[in-house]
Nucleic acid binder design. Structure first.
Lengths: 210, 210
DNA sequence: TAGTATACTAGACAACAGTCTAGATAACAA
DNA sequence: TTGTTATCTAGACTGTTGTCTAGTATACTA
């Protein structure tokens, strides 16, 4: 359906993109024409109509109403997830002071919407190799969906004392274990009455290679 | 420096943000006034001037020239990386027909800029466990920066025959090996004269957990 | 108490910006 | 050849859009 653009049409689209990037708002037809070296308004509008017909932009009959279909898309999908430096018992995870930076992730990927009522996500940097057999390495970032409970075999972030730890949540009959995925590390056994504070479930793993 | 906004000013800013999100271009003063229930133009412009003075937006004396300082900046990081379904020898990787979907990633994370001349990135879904010891599992997505060569010990995507494969690039004297990170799999040895087609270097790994 | 910032109404005015008509040239397909 | 698409020039017309003047009311500060 989305037909190919001609070379000139592509140049027009690039010019619009550049304009928005520079100014923060779309160009008028005259401004666009000046930038492209087209002296007549009709020349520009016919380009715009052609590009719109192919689905790469939308227009309304109003001032500066060009909107790029593909430029808007990442805006809708993009979600800023705070990277939390330290988690303290008794304090909300997203205490502003502990937010070190933000990570832009694909909202659709982690099952998030940008609606304010949607479940909150945060990111943690993993320290140590305790989950190495699950493919989570030292230095990886994990994206966590905040929730107070977990299903068996979920990988969760739990608060043990004053430290957040990433482990697999295993239910063995009545017994709950926080199982490291590491050949030599021992599971942490939790008695049913003293359940650990589950901060959330790991829904994605991000790794940056040098 | 960035002073606090009043409640009403915050509402104005939110209205602008929502408008841009919905339409893709900024509102006029009249449109903004209508949305906020302000009947006079002066009422709206004085808000805009106040907000601009506090640094949250910029204006020019032209139609729809409101641009939000804070909205654009974080989302400029967002980059859409195409997920390539199949790679065919002799064809450009980014042949449109093979792009299955897009992934929004943090441009800063993968060392990308959105400038047109910057190195191109693409994403691949990993099949098989051949890189399991490097923490890359079946079903993971890898982000690749396109480049024709590699440094020793880089994890690369190489084209072997008609198939793209993720391996570690190892140089053993004159000999080049494509080394799987798997306990039982054998390396692929490449003679110096018949160097494999390196498509690029893996710069990030993404995993989605169910 | 005077001064200043916030938060509005009402409306005039001039420049801006999209639409439209009327052409022209070139490439390419039927 | 004829028709279609892509690219463009020139310019009239009209509704849109930002600016500005002139007021009103409230709250807080000095």
């Amino acid at each position: 359906m989305a037909k190919q653009l001609t070379k000139r049409q592509h140049a027009v689209l690039d010019a619009i993109r550049a304009w928005i990037r520079e100014r923060g708002y779309p160009p008028t037809i005259r401004e666009l024409g000046k930038r492209l070296g087209i002296k007549s308004l009709r020349g520009v509008t016919s380009h715009l109509d052609a590009i719109a017909k192919k689905g790469f932009l939308k227009r309304e009959s109003r001032a500066r109403s060009i909107s790029l279909s593909d430029l808007l898309a990442p805006f809708e999908q993009a979600l800023r997830v705070p990277i939390v430096g330290r988690i303290r018992a008794g304090q909300p995870v997203l205490a502003q002071e502990e937010v070190e930076a933000h990570l832009v992730v694909d909202g659709a990927w982690i099952g998030a919407s940008s609606a304010p009522e949607a479940p909150q996500h945060f990111a943690l940097k993993v320290h140590g190799d305790s989950m190495i057999n699950a493919g989570i390495l030292d230095g990886d970032y994990v994206i966590i969906r905040q929730q107070p409970t977990a299903e068996p075999n979920d990988i969760v972030v739990a608060l043990l004392g004053d430290e957040a730890t990433v482990k697999r949540f295993v239910k063995d009959g009545e017994q709950i274990r926080l199982q490291p995925e590491h050949p030599t590390m021992e599971p942490i056994i939790v008695t049913p009455d003293k359940s650990p504070a589950i901060l959330g479930k790991v829904v994605a793993v991000f790794r940056k290679l040098a």
